[in-house]
């Protein structure tokens, strides 16, 4: 019965190691796939420069990361959640209900959202939020009543755009990027075209009008991508007329296949985003469980190292990868050093 002996001894080893590993010695991070590249760059450099083991960074999306983060306090919960949007008050409540009360919010910088198409495709070189809104909205106001969007080619939206079928690949609803896209592009375009005003004038409540502005057509001209940017890239590769939504860093790593479009006449780059000229950008965050500082070795050092000038500064490796450095980095560094927690949210 060597099986029995073997399995018994391995189970015993596993049990012993389970108790031995109770003291976790590396920082565990999860969350946004947009922040993941930056977090992995920081984690790698952290492992090289400190005596702590390299932190573990999981992907999965901002919401999934914050959900894990709010699961509770203790060594079998994560220490840091990466997010491509600010934490919501409902998430703070969930956190509090599970005993996660002192949360440090750390803004690491900004990320631009760009519109890019196949390098050899049609001349998609300039967009305005209004163009995108008119092309992608689900319903438009016709004679005072909502009707399905009848636009099928880009030149119907704006004569300066190519006369090709609309085929947009936008991030799915589980992505933090989608929210930014809805607010900074669709809603903005809705206001710019005057559609929002007209809807309110036609008797819709403001909330309904906003909802109608951000609703994306479902007739196949706009496709939600629930996967990563690599999936969007593959779709663009198969469709010469396709236009996709990417993060700036992803675009900058794939300039050999993608061509980027200006938005409202501004070319996306770390400089234009930092100056605020490029309209579609958003802050990136990570959240730290204060209760874990001092318990998990290296957690505070990791947070401080992340926002240090060496990493997140304008000449650091994060900026080289595509992060737009935060002009207020010094304030962030100070608040991390002081372990400042978030105030109560309304």
């Amino acid at each position: 019965m060597s099986f029995v002996k073997l399995s018994a001894s391995v189970l015993a080893i596993a049990a012993v190691s389970a108790t031995a590993a109770a003291a976790r010695d590396q920082v565990q991070v999860a969350g946004s796939s947009t922040v993941l590249p930056y977090a992995s760059i920081v984690a790698e450099a952290f492992g090289e420069n400190f005596d702590f083991p390299t932190p573990v960074v999981e992907s999965g999306g901002s919401s999934a990361g914050l959900k894990q983060f709010c699961d509770g306090v203790g060594e079998n919960t994560i220490d840091v959640a990466n997010a491509s949007r600010a934490i919501k008050s409902s998430e703070v409540e969930t956190c509090a209900a599970n005993g996660v009360t002192d949360i440090m919010e750390v803004r690491i910088g900004y990320d631009g959202i760009v519109f890019a198409s196949q390098l050899n495709g049609p001349e998609f070189t300039a967009f305005t939020p209004a163009d995108i809104y008119s092309a992608l909205t689900a319903q438009t106001l016709v004679d005072g009543a909502l009707a399905d969007n009848a636009v099928t080619t880009w030149d119907q939206v704006n004569p300066e755009l190519p006369a090709v079928e609309i085929a947009a690949f936008i991030p799915g609803t589980k992505h933090g990027t989608r929210e930014v896209f809805e607010e900074k592009v669709l809603l903005q375009g809705c206001e710019d075209t005057g559609a929002m005003e007209a809807m309110i004038a036609s008797g819709m409540s403001e909330d309904d009008a906003e909802g109608a502005c951000m609703a994306v057509r479902t007739d196949g001209m706009s496709v939600d991508i629930d996967g990563d940017y690599t999936e969007t890239l593959a779709r663009i590769g198969n469709n010469p007329n396709g236009i996709g939504v990417f993060g700036l860093a992803f675009y900058e790593n794939n300039t050999d296949t993608l061509k980027v479009a200006t938005v409202s006449g501004v070319e996306p780059s770390t400089e234009t985003i930092a100056s605020g000229d490029y309209p579609v950008s958003r802050p990136l965050y990570f959240y730290v469980k204060k209760a874990h500082i001092g318990v998990i070795p290296g957690l505070k050092e990791y947070a401080e190292f992340f926002v240090s000038d060496d990493m997140a500064g304008p000449d650091g490796p994060l900026s080289a990868y595509g992060l737009v450095s935060d002009p207020e980095l010094a304030a962030t560094q100070a608040s991390v050093a002081d372990e400042t927690v978030m105030g109560t949210m309304n």
């Binding site: 080893i13 596993a14 012993v16 190691s17 389970a18 031995a20 590993a21 590396q26 565990q28 999860a30 993941l36 977090a39 992995s40 984690a43 790698e44 492992g47 083991p53 390299t54 573990v56 960074v57 999981e58 992907s59 999965g60």
Partner: peptide, 25 residues
């Protein structure tokens, strides 16, 4: 493995020893 947190930037440390091999991320 996606759901139990084994996808990401994880495999960065060679485990030191048998116990760590089973328990370390």
């Amino acid at each position: 493995l996606l759901l139990i947190g084994m996808v990401g930037y994880i495999a960065s440390n060679m485990p030191d020893g048998i116990a760590a091999g089973f328990m370390a991320p």
